[in-house]
């Protein structure tokens, strides 16, 4: 297959677009690297070199001694696995030669992040944290307190995320609200051990995905991205802890470390 200069530029742009979408929606570095390289070689490049850092990607495509390099900044768009699945599917179809460059470009541009109905998510997250309270040994009243505390925090979290507030502020405020609501359970002595609700209701704010991604990035050789993700997740946890401590100081109810 012969590529003109324009075609190679086009190919590089398509590959970097795929990598950018993956990076923005929370794929691990290995997946970003592999998928971009596979898509590039499937569209005809001889090789694709890629450098993934925590907030940008740099890509160089090589064809008959011609190099084309381009950089994309990757702003965090929130974790969205559906986008990751779709990009992966496009990559596999391009590899099987079911799509040419124009079709791949068209499909990538038409991708739209799917979002679940927000109230459904609030309901499920409420039940999730309530289930955690069951794991900690809580009874039915604690289950109810946890449900309302974490559902309230989730509503606030979605509302602030929708208005593009800083994630650290968002998490601290959500932790504050969750702890305050669940401390009502302690004040009115609702259930056997109402402190359990205070521990369980903030678990919706654990940055689980960034933490797992951080460790698996580091295991697979992307040490610097892994460290960046780890620091981000740690800072998020610290802001959650600040929110919890602020609420405990204001209400005077101690649910942690008594």
């Amino acid at each position: 297959m012969e590529l003109s200069r324009e075609q190679q530029t086009e190919l590089t742009r398509i590959a970097v677009k795929a990598g950018q979408i993956l990076h923005q929606h929370g794929a691990e570095s290995r997946l970003v690297e592999q998928t971009t390289q596979r898509l590039g070689t499937a569209l005809g490049a001889q090789s694709i070199e890629l450098s993934v850092s925590s907030d940008s990607i740099v890509i160089t495509s090589l064809f008959n001694g011609n190099c084309i390099t381009t950089t994309r900044r990757c702003y965090d768009r929130g974790i969205n696995m559906q986008m990751v699945c779709d990009v992966q599917r496009i990559c596999v179809m391009a590899e099987k030669q079911l799509m040419d460059a124009a079709q791949v470009k068209d499909r990538l541009q038409r991708l739209k992040p799917m979002k679940y109905n927000r109230w459904l998510v609030v309901l499920m997250i409420g039940f999730s944290c309530a289930s955690f309270s069951h794991f900690f040994g809580g009874d039915m009243p604690v289950y109810i307190t946890t449900f309302f505390a974490s559902a309230g925090a989730m509503i606030l979290r979605q509302e602030l995320a929708h208005r593009h507030h800083n994630p650290f502020v968002n998490f601290a405020l959500a932790a504050f609200v969750a702890t305050s609501i669940s401390s009502l359970g302690v004040i009115y002595d609702f259930g056997e051990e109402p402190q359990i609700a205070m521990a369980a209701c903030v678990l919706l704010l654990v940055p689980g995905f960034p933490l797992i991604n951080a460790v698996s990035d580091m295991l697979k050789g992307h040490i610097s991205t892994g460290i960046a993700r780890w620091v981000f997740a740690t800072l998020l946890s610290i802001s959650v802890a600040i929110g919890i401590v602020a609420s405990m100081t204001l209400t005077g109810v101690v649910g942690w470390i008594s």
Partner: peptide, 19 residues
């Protein structure tokens, strides 16, 4: 009690419905 948080957080991560 374990499937509920798994699905709840999967929805926060926008995992496709079929999955």
């Amino acid at each position: 009690f374990a499937w509920i948080p798994a699905v709840g957080f999967a929805m926060v991560f926008n995992v496709p419905k079929k999955m």
